[in-house]
Structures are given as structure tokens and as C-alpha cells.
């Protein structure tokens, strides 16, 4: 087993106007080669920051600590130039919004050629041919015509397929899909997920799939990591975490998934309270103010992220049992 992503006590802090904002704190996460990781969390859970960190795309105001390794390289021990050299070669991404991810005034073909700029020794027409083949592989009909079109002439689903094709063109060792289906309607979402499932063999590495939809995780992913308010609260194999969730937040999240509710009710279940602001984090466990199973120690001591069965969980209750 070779770890393709390895994070050790990894934190991201932004310089904010009201002082430093600790957006991601002490994340320990490993992703092995060939697996699909579902990164789950609400808005503001820090998953987008973590994705930017994996892509070496953090803004200048961000400071990182701890270690984030891509393969054998400690990403944040490298120079900025070395990090940039990894983008578009070992790292590729499919962004959240297919409607704005492509340049509106450049033809699809020219954009797909530009994305292959790291590939040396092949001509422009060969790159265009590779692009045409890749569009066909992601299920786009008449790929030759698509190459001559502008993004606004394509539907959202088609544009997201183009974005997936773009990411696959560079043969990345890590493909990061940042909520690639959130902006799409349900039918198109299902199609896009099906394409990623079919093409997972084409990625000579691993896929990180960011989502807030547990149903997508169940259909697509091998592993799952659950984030809450900037911390990783539970991670493990999908079957294990979804069947036997150990962290109260994971359980609450699963209970809120409409697809898992067996008896129909008038209102959807919600988790009481709100995500704490990074300016006013609670002492002890980050989830303690909203947790139904809170005990005294939760309010004073931060739980360690410890192995439990096949998963890892940050909860005093599992530690105690």
C-alpha cells in the first residue's frame, strides 16, 4: 500500500482583519493509491481550504503548519516554483461550477490544448487529437464539433464533462473533484458520477471527491473523511463509516440525509445549533455545544483522533468505550 496523500497534523490559518482565522486544524489523513476518497462536510467546514491546500492553490494570506505529502514530496517544504510544477501534471482538479470554470471567450479545443502545456514533444494537432479522444471517452457526442465551440454553447452537464476530460488529459496522480455535481440537476449529477466511476481506472492514482451528499459518497467512494468546523472528526472505509458511524456528528449527518429516512415526517431532521465561528471556537471538543451525547470532559479537553475498529474517530465517548 502506497500513500498518495498523507497529512500529518496539518493546519491552515488565514490572516484576517480581526486576527488570524484557523480554518483547518490538525488534520491527520491518509489516502492510498487507486482509491476514491469522499471528503464530506457542511459549508464552512474547511473542506474547500483543504482542497486548495492539496492543489497548492492557497491564497497568499494563508499560513500552513504540519505536513501535507503528495507521494514522497512534502508539498509545503517545496519552493513555490516546485509546487506550481506539480499543478497540471501530478495534480488536477474539476471545479465546483461548470458554468464559470472555462474561459468564456476561448474555444473549447484551444483551452484543452493549453491544459496539456506540460506535455512536451507532442504537437498542437496531436494535443487536439488527444482532447478529441478524451471528450469521446467522457461520453460527449460529436467531440470534433465541441472543440470548435465556446463554453456558452454547451449545457452545464456537457461543460462538466469537458472539465473532467481536461483533468484526465494530464494523467494526474491525484484528481480533486471539488463538489463537481453541486451545480447540476439530479439527472446530470447521476450521469457525471457514473462517468467518474467508469473512468476511475483511467486515473493512475487517487481521486478526492468533495461533497456534502452522503448518498454520492455511498455510490462512488471507497473511503470517507468527515470534516466539521475545520477539524476531521471521523475517517475510514465507506462501508464501515456509513454502517457504523462512531462520531455523533457523522451520525447526525447521516440522520439528516433524506434518502436514509425510513418513516416519512412533516419536517426534515436538522442538527440543532450552528457551526461555531473560527473566531470563537469552543474549548474541548469542537462539536460539544451541539452534541447530544456530551459528557464533562468534552467541554474542556480536545479529543485525540484515534483508531477505532477500521476507522479513526475524534470523540471522548468512543475513547472511553
Amino acid at each position: 500500500m502506497t500513500a498518495i496523500i498523507d497529512m500529518n497534523d496539518f493546519s491552515i490559518t488565514y490572516a484576517g482583519e480581526r486576527g488570524p482565522v484557523p480554518a483547518v486544524r490538525g488534520v491527520n489523513l491518509t489516502l492510498e493509491k487507486g482509491r476514491i476518497l469522499g471528503l464530506v462536510g457542511e459549508s464552512g467546514s474547511g473542506k474547500s481550504s483543504l482542497v486548495s491546500a492539496m492543489l497548492a492553490l492557497l491564497p497568499k494570506s494563508a499560513k500552513v503548519s504540519g505536513r501535507l505529502s503528495i507521494g514522497a514530496d512534502d508539498l509545503y517544504a517545496l519552493s513555490e516554483a516546485q509546487r506550481r510544477a506539480m499543478r497540471g501534471q501530478r495534480l488536477a482538479t474539476v471545479s465546483q461550477d461548470p458554468f464559470t470554470a472555462l474561459n468564456p471567450v476561448i474555444r473549447i479545443g484551444a483551452q484543452l490544448v493549453e491544459f496539456q502545456h506540460r506535455l512536451k514533444g507532442i504537437s498542437r494537432s496531436q494535443k487536439l487529437e488527444r482532447a478529441r479522444e478524451m471528450l469521446a471517452r467522457v461520453g460527449i457526442s460529436d467531440p470534433g464539433t465541441r472543440l470548435t465551440q465556446y463554453p456558452h454553447q454547451l449545457s452545464g452537464g456537457l461543460r462538466q464533462r469537458v472539465a473532467i476530460a481536461a483533468a484526465l488529459l494530464v494523467n494526474p496522480s491525484i484528481l480533486i473533484a471539488d463538489e463537481p455535481t453541486t451545480a447540476l440537476d439530479a439527472t446530470t449529477e447521476a450521469e457525471v458520477i457514473e462517468i467518474i466511476r467508469e473512468l476511475r481506472g483511467a486515473v493512475d492514482g487517487s481521486i478526492v471527491f468533495v461533497t456534502h451528499d452522503m448518498g454520492v459518497v455511498a455510490r462512488l467512494c471507497d473511503d470517507v473523511a468527515v470534516m466539521y468546523a475545520g477539524e476531521l472528526v471521523e475517517s475510514g472505509p465507506v462501508a464501515e463509516v456509513l454502517e457504523r458511524p462512531q462520531h455523533p456528528y457523522t451520525r447526525a449527518l447521516l440522520a439528516c440525509d433524506p434518502a436514509r429516512i425510513e418513516t416519512p415526517s412533516r419536517s426534515l431532521p436538522t442538527i440543532p445549533g450552528t457551526v461555531p465561528s473560527p473566531h470563537a471556537l469552543p474549548a474541548g471538543c469542537i462539536f460539544s455545544p451541539r452534541c447530544g451525547a456530551v459528557i464533562d470532559i468534552c467541554r474542556s479537553v480536545r479529543p485525540a483522533f484515534l483508531p477505532s475498529d477500521q476507522s479513526r474517530v475524534a470523540c471522548h465517548r468512543t475513547e472511553a468505550s
Partner: peptide
């Protein structure tokens, strides 16, 4: 600030090339 600029950065295209070739025409 637009999203497509982030896409090009994510593919490792240099900032100058992004600005001059892809952002300036817009």
C-alpha cells in the same frame, strides 16, 4: 478573480500567461 482563472492556475499555467492571454481579452 473569476473561476476560470483558478482553473488555469490549477493546471499550472503561469500567472503572466493567464493574465495576458486569457484574462486581458475578457
Amino acid at each position: 478573480q473569476e473561476n476560470h482563472v483558478r482553473t488555469y492556475r490549477a493546471f499550472g499555467v503561469s500567472d503572466t500567461r493567464i493574465a495576458m492571454r486569457y484574462a486581458l481579452p475578457i
